[in-house]
Write a protein that binds this DNA or RNA. Structure first.
Lengths: 367, 367
DNA sequence: ATTTAGCACTCGAACATGAACAGTGCTAAA
DNA sequence: TTTAGCACTGTTCATGTTCGAGTGCTAAAT
């Protein structure tokens, strides 16, 4: 994929990398003269200018206006993250924080995701995102019913490794045996079934089995279907939205407004990201990076999303991501997300605290 | 409470109200000439100017700069909401939306709060807030244990009307009987106890009762304590943060930044608001309004918080609020929050759909 | 064939200027 | 007690000016 880009001369690569590094550092367009300060670049400003003009021609750079320096284009960033970006080694401090997170050994998926998201936001100082993706065939493995009081039952549903509960209220007292009976019926008829597979005939069959308490069936089934569809719909949360304001690219009100509006379009985001996160294959093994208006969320003009899937026994159960300006500190963010998600995946699988070393390139997967 | 403010002449009240109404309408300082267009005010601009000067003297108005009109001060708004603001009658449409919410008959407190918050944000076009307040003496009423698989138990805790679950993992297989045994021990020893009341001797006592499976006790108790302290710590959520940007007062980056930072200081907010929401007495019966830097959250310079407690069987279990510029449409917001919270409270208590009429003044409680 | 120095050019940022305007406070008359 | 009139003040907006950074191009140098 980056083979075809190898047609960039080494000198062009050097200059492009220097420009992007500098731009990430200070956020301003970088000019030819500035680059001559870079020890690695032993050419005059005029030479650099010529190279820059060519790089612009090729689409890697752009010029805000005639008499300004150059800034990287989205294509430029793409090339940068694919083949130019340095490896970042997490500091001892950062490693320690990550370790503390997984040693905490939470087992509730939601809690884990939330904590991981918080930590990601804190460590990177960008906005963090936690996704519980949509899933295709959500079914309840098992039902339990618990009597809260005479009139109230609690329906407990085991979905994969997680538990969902719902209250069921009756107008007349429900004896304990009826609750057990209902649980039995549910487990016989409604377990391992998707919302679509719970049909009217099935419901009527269950009602018949419940005798005089048949009136309980319909509301319970309604609750079940709501829960299933609510759960397989996925969920997305954000943390550290205010951190956006640390970066000058969001000082533009319109852009900011768009971003905040985006954050509230949770259904859309869940849908789009679930498709990315749910992919089987090498894609979901690695950190994924979406720069600017590259495919998915069109609105993210000047923003980049870096995220990686979290798995439990091989299937994706979540994703943690970072959202920030295209001009973000890619090397740190990539390293952070990669280590974080790997750590969480490990813990989910077997509770083993992971190694926490920077062992392989999180994007290309090599060495 | 507003008796002592009655020393304002009727004319001053008229003018003050007109100024605030106008300012709420268009957001700009209002001048003397503009007010002469108001049919109710049959004085010349000069007279109005004199009155305005006096009102400023008294602290109800302020002047951004010498040659501008007047804007209401926080004191002015306070007086306005206490004694000047009109009653707002919800439109048929609004009433219908509220009705739909409660007819939905959710029974999960969290879901109800979340839906109510969403609706509040949508109907008012301000940022909405949902609070589950801190509580003093949270205890688990009952424990249940469910076997997920050989190595995993699910601990189910009944706290008041709500259910909390936690996973418990064991290194070696746990037979079903052991789970039941553990549940029995928990119900005997750890029910109705706050986190502080579960002491080391008690823990050791439980361990002794569990025989060779004593290793389960410690992690379970840890989970329980975490859950209790997590739960009684309360929770706060927001919806529609981007709506802030509809209002020019948040076009100032610094202010906006402060607001967003405030939204992320959830612990502090929960603490402060819980104290307000949890008060027994008339305070929590009514819509509460905090204007600008009035007590609590100091940072809310140009913002107002309007909120009201939601109760179940007389005790506060939540609160719904609206956050917006001090220049907010008080009459609509107050009416909305009042009707919404009353409706939800009703449903929580007995499932009765409430009347949905504007029957009494939500702030002063009279007539 | 490359690289570099030099120079004219362009454009935006920052600042100053001045007119138009809205709204005030004050005074004197009604 | 109210009102008309007027001088005064501060904001906003359009316009103009300067300054400097950075460019592209050309011609000389390597």
């Amino acid at each position: 994929m980056n083979e075809e880009k190898k047609d960039l001369s080494e000198r062009k690569k050097l200059i492009l990398k220097a420009i992007i590094d500098a731009h990430i550092e200070n956020g301003e367009p970088v000019g030819s003269k500035f680059l001559t300060q870079n020890k690695q670049i032993a050419y005059s400003s005029a030479t650099i200018r010529n190279e820059m003009a060519e790089l612009e021609e090729m689409g890697f750079l752009e010029q805000p206006h005639t008499s300004a320096g150059r800034i990287p284009s989205e294509l430029g960033y793409r090339f940068y993250v694919d083949s130019l970006v340095d490896r970042y080694n997490l500091t001892q401090n950062e490693l320690a924080e990550l370790k503390r997170l997984v040693l905490n050994k939470q087992t509730e998926l939601d809690t884990i995701l939330q904590n991981a998201m918080r930590l990601a936001a804190k460590l990177t100082n960008y906005t963090a995102m936690a996704l519980r993706p949509r899933m295709l065939r959500i079914t309840v493995d098992r039902y339990e019913l618990m009597r809260l009081d005479e009139y109230t039952l609690v329906l407990i549903m085991v979905i994969g490794q997680t538990i969902q509960t719902r209250h069921v209220r009756s107008q007349i007292p429900v004896p304990a045996e009826v609750g057990m009976q209902l649980a039995k019926v549910l487990n016989e008829c409604a377990a391992e079934k998707t919302a679509e597979e719970i049909t009217m005939p099935l419901l009527m069959h269950m009602e018949r089995q419940m005798g005089e308490y048949e009136f309980l069936v319909s509301p319970v089934i309604k609750s079940i279907c709501e829960t299933i569809t609510g759960y397989d719909g996925g969920e997305i949360r954000f943390e550290g939205i205010n951190r956006l304001l640390s970066y000058p690219e969001y000082y533009d009100m319109d852009r900011l407004k768009e971003m905040l509006a985006l954050f509230e379009r949770k259904e859309d985001l869940v849908k789009i990201l679930s498709e990315e996160a749910g992919q089987i294959g090498p894609g979901s093994e690695q950190v994924q990076i979406f720069i600017g208006r590259e495919n998915l969320v069109k609105i993210m003009d000047n923003s980049t999303l870096v995220f990686k899937t979290i798995k439990r026994q091989g299937t994706p159960v979540g994703a943690i991501g970072i959202i920030g300006p295209t001009r973000m500190d890619y090397k740190r963010v990539i390293a952070m997300i990669d280590t974080l998600t790997s750590g969480v995946t490990n813990v989910l699988d077997d509770g083993t605290p992971p190694a926490f070393t920077n062992d392989q390139d999180p994007v290309t997967g090599k060495e």
